[in-house]
Amino acid sequence: MADDAKYVTLTDANFEEEVLQSDQPVLVDFWAEWCGPCRMIAPIVEELAADFEGRAKVGKVDVDQNSKVAMKYNVRSIPTLLFFKDGEVADQVVGATAKKQLAKKLEALTAQPA
């Protein structure tokens, strides 16, 4: 599964370029290995990456390795899912959430004119 992963692994180093400068909306999943609910929703996030390929970007931030980004966006609970558009947080979801709801939020952002 990891071989054909459609999501982007985000880091403190590439966040600016991959997310803030992206011309597509970006769904960012803040997670950690030790977070049970994060592991449970990981397949949903990866499916969304495939579903929205070409229209929106999906990235994952391991908060253990990338505390700067997590701190910058005041992430104090995981999973936290932030939706970025034009470099700004346009929407957010804290906690495990149904795929359908995430898809709806992402769909809304892709539908808007840039």
Binding site: A32, W34, C35, G36, P37, C38, V63, D64, A70, N74, V75, R76, S77, I78, P79, T80, V94, G95
Partner: peptide, 17 residues
């Protein structure tokens, strides 16, 4: 303030504090 310091999952969120 859920997700901003209010949590029902210490194992998820404890490390942020």
């Amino acid at each position: 303030l859920i997700g901003r310091g209010v949590s029902a999952c210490a194992t998820c969120d404890g490390a942020f504090f």
